[in-house]
């Protein structure tokens, strides 16, 4: 569909807003519907929209194979790494409240615990988002027909 000027113009206008919305969904997973998975899917969809309207080669120029492969594993690594950090901080695997450390017994104990758990949840949501976004675009890049086929 590379030759359709309407599709190219509209998607060029929409993609930044779609991606902004995806980041909003990931960042506000704790207070509104959505989260890492849905936000990641939306990011992946925005890249797929770009590929559909500008072609596979142009899309791979924006998100190269090495970047999407790196993102594939980086998300899971971030998720699992936060779990290990929790152990290093003295808690169980994925026990985010361990990040609070000594503050957990101080004056503002509840505040510190909530902040620690928020941090952990944000971290894993971002991890989920990165992996899901990368996998969605990878599947599309590899299954859709290339121009040279």
């Amino acid at each position: 569909m590379k030759e359709h000027i309407v599709i190219r113009t509209v998607s060029r206008l929409l993609i930044p807003f779609i991606q902004l919305f995806a980041l909003y969904v990931i960042a506000h997973g704790d207070i509104s519907p959505g989260g890492g998975f849905q936000g990641g899917v939306i990011i992946g969809a925005s890249v797929i929209l770009y590929v559909i309207s500008f072609g596979m080669e142009d899309g791979r120029r924006r998100v190269s194979e090495s970047i999407s492969d790196f993102m594939n594993s980086a998300g899971v690594f971030l998720f699992a790494g936060i779990g290990v950090l929790c152990i290093l901080a003295g808690g169980a695997y994925l026990e985010y409240t361990a990040f609070a450390g000594k503050a957990a017994h101080g004056e503002h104990a509840e505040h510190a615990l909530h902040l620690a758990s928020h941090l952990g949840i944000y971290g894993i949501e971002i991890g989920v988002g990165i992996t899901v976004a990368a996998v969605m675009m990878t599947i599309f890049f590899e299954t859709a027909r290339h121009e040279d086929d």
């Binding site: 519907p33 989260g35 902040l115 758990s117 949840i121």
Partner: peptide, 14 residues
Amino acid sequence: ETGVPNFVTAVLAS
């Protein structure tokens, strides 16, 4: 317990 208002996220992530 988690400080997260959306308890779907609390269940999924915590």
